[in-house]
Every structure is written in structure tokens, then in C-alpha cells.
């Protein structure tokens, strides 16, 4: 479900839920109605008593919903009133996940419904310790990370979102592969097409899987740069394997195409990462997209020319 397949079914009904057997003095935790999020919070809070106020975020996780504006000040106020929380608990504190803060103004929630927002830890597995220590978070609980495991888990998300373009590109490559001295040849479409598709998939794999995993060790700041460098490296590796049969035009085409495709895919991994700013991504794209297009165009022309 993380990969976006049938994700829309993984929504739970918004409202108030109980973890364990909460009473009037039990803490109130606020979360999103993405089933994966809900289940993880319940799992991490096993053995504790708490109220869980689930907002209607259309089945989206806390951080993205806060960015989209569904995990919001207004939605918190609405759910507090709907659950009649003032009657149910004898304190006036809501524990809101820190990553919900982009969508929430703590002082406005307090003004509108009398509940004070306390921002809890980023990761729900820190919740028990946070509650035990009088609702205080250590600096480490307040920082997002982007570990090797995080990056590895997220690579299929990118691949899954690209499959439609990939299928069309494969079809186009087979058709273009057939163009040659005899105008169009089905045998060339197959033999040249299959190599071009392999090259394209190598670029895709380098940009969407290898680059994210090796991210901290690749030179450059921009994702497009890191992807292009990784692409040149795997392209070289590809040349070492195929080179005997390719000729210089095809070899150049391979190198340029792998770098361009890898750079493009790596650039799209910005959305899965935790440390990119929109201003930065926009700047990177304005510089990288013309370069990627030029690489792909020159590479494509070399490949087409090699048929004659």
C-alpha cells in the first residue's frame, strides 16, 4: 500500500478512538486517517491508555497532509468539537505530531477551542518515552532523518509511479529502432529496440534505485547532478559489457541516454526525500531539464544515425 497500489482503500473513519482503557486524565493524541499511520501509532502505544483523535486527511499521512492543508487547524477544531472532547477529558492538551505543524497554528487552535497544542515527537515509537518524561521531547526526537533503510524502502514508490511512462517509452523505442536504410525493418525494430530498452531501463534503475541508496556518497548537491553522475558510471559499466558490438555512435548514445534518464528519475526522488526545499527543487529543475533534454536529444540522434 506504501507503493500507491490501492492506497485509497486504506482509509479509516475520522473521529475519536481509544487505546487501552483511557480515562478523563489520559492524553489525547492527534493523528491522520491513513491506515498505516493509525496502525503504527496503536502498535507503538500498546500497553498505554490514551485517546486517539483521528483527523480526516483523505487517507494521507501526517506530513504530506499538513503540506496539502488537510491536516490543519480547522480540521483539529472540527474533530475536537465533533468528539465533544471538552466533556470527555478533564485537561486541555492535545498532543499533535511535530510533522503536522506545517498545517497547524498552535495558538489559533488554543484560541478557537481552548485546547493547548503540544507538539509531540516526529516518530511515534518515541511517544511512550515522551509521555513518561512529562511531555518533553529530546532534540533527537525533533529531527527528521533519512536513513539508508528509509531510502531503500521508498525506491519502489518512485518505480510504481513511473510505470505508465515506462511502457509508452518502451513502445516508442521499438518503433524508432526499426527506422533505417530500408525505411522500416521489423528485425531491426527488435534487435535495436531491445538494446535501447535495456539502456532506458538501466537509466531508470540507476536514477530511481541506485542513486537514492547511494545518495550521501554521490558528489553534488542537486539530485539531478547526483543522478547524472551515477548514470555516467553505470553507462560506462554498460559500455564495458556491450562495447565490442556497438560502434562509437551507439556507445555515445548509450552514455548520454543513461545519464539523462538517470538524472530525470533522481530529480523525482526529491519528493520522497526529507531535506529538499521547493525553492531549491525548482532552481535545480530549471537548470537540469534543458541539460537532460539536450543529452537525450543528442543521444537519440546518435542512435538513429547509427542505423544508417
Amino acid at each position: 500500500m506504501r507503493w500507491g497500489l490501492g492506497r485509497s482503500r486504506y482509509t479509516i473513519a475520522p473521529g475519536l478512538y481509544a487505546i487501552g482503557t483511557p480515562a478523563g486524565d489520559s492524553p489525547v493524541l492527534v493523528t491522520a486517517n491513513y491506515k498505516m499511520t493509525f496502525d503504527i501509532v496503536r502498535r507503538d502505544m500498546r500497553g498505554h491508555d490514551a485517546w486517539l483523535l483521528v483527523l480526516d486527511t483523505k487517507g494521507i499521512n501526517v506530513w504530506c497532509a499538513a503540506g496539502k492543508g488537510t491536516f490543519s487547524t480547522d480540521e483539529i477544531i472540527r474533530q475536537v468539537q465533533r468528539a465533544n472532547l471538552q466533556q470527555l477529558v478533564n485537561h486541555r492538551t492535545l498532543i499533535v505530531p511535530q510533522l503536522g505543524a506545517p498545517g497547524v497554528a498552535a495558538h489559533k487552535v488554543h484560541k478557537a477551542c481552548g485546547f493547548k497544542v503540544v507538539y509531540g515527537p516526529i516518530r511515534s515509537d518515541d511517544l511512550p518515552q515522551f509521555l513518561r518524561t512529562g511531555q518533553t521531547a529530546t532534540p533527537d526526537m525533533r529531527r527528521v532523518r533519512f536513513t539508508l533503510t528509509d531510502r531503500f524502502i521508498l525506491t519502489p514508490v518512485e518505480l510504481a509511479s513511473m510505470w505508465r511512462y515506462t511502457l509508452w517509452s518502451i513502445l516508442a523505442l521499438f518503433i524508432l529502432g526499426g527506422i533505417g536504410p530500408q525505411i522500416f525493418s521489423f528485425s531491426a525494430a527488435w534487435s535495436r529496440g531491445i538494446i535501447a530498452v535495456t539502456v532506458g531501463l538501466l537509466g531508470l534503475f540507476t536514477g530511481a534505485v541506485i542513486t537514492p541508496i547511494l545518495l550521501p556518497w554521490l558528489p553534488g548537491r542537486a539530485f539531478a547532478t547526483r543522478g547524472a553522475i551515477a548514470g555516467l558510471a553505470t553507462g560506462m559499466l554498460g559500455l564495458l559489457i556491450f562495447s565490442a558490438s556497438l560502434g562509437w555512435l551507439n556507445s555515445l548514445a548509450l552514455l548520454l541516454a543513461v545519464a539523462a534518464v538517470s538524472s530525470w528519475c533522481a530529480m523525482h526522488f526529491t519528493g520522497s526525500s526529507t531535506f529538499t526545499s521547493p525553492s531549491g527543487v525548482e532552481k535545480e529543475m530549471r537548470q537540469a531539464i534543458p541539460a537532460q533534454a539536450a543529452f537525450l536529444l543528442v543521444g537519440g540522434l546518435c542512435w538513429l544515425a547509427a542505423a544508417f
Partner: peptide
């Protein structure tokens, strides 16, 4: 990362940022 959390939670509007999502597809 220009998420906007600081500006939105500043009670005296001392912070400003052009907030958004750092995602190429977006």
C-alpha cells in the same frame, strides 16, 4: 526545507517563508 511550520506557529508573525513541497512532480 520551507515546510512553513515555523511561520504558521509564530504567534507574532515574525517569520515568513514561501512554503511548499520540495517535490519535482509537484
Amino acid at each position: 526545507i520551507e515546510c512553513g511550520a515555523c511561520a504558521g506557529n509564530c504567534p507574532v508573525e515574525a517569520l515568513s517563508v514561501k512554503a511548499g513541497v520540495g517535490c519535482a512532480s509537484a
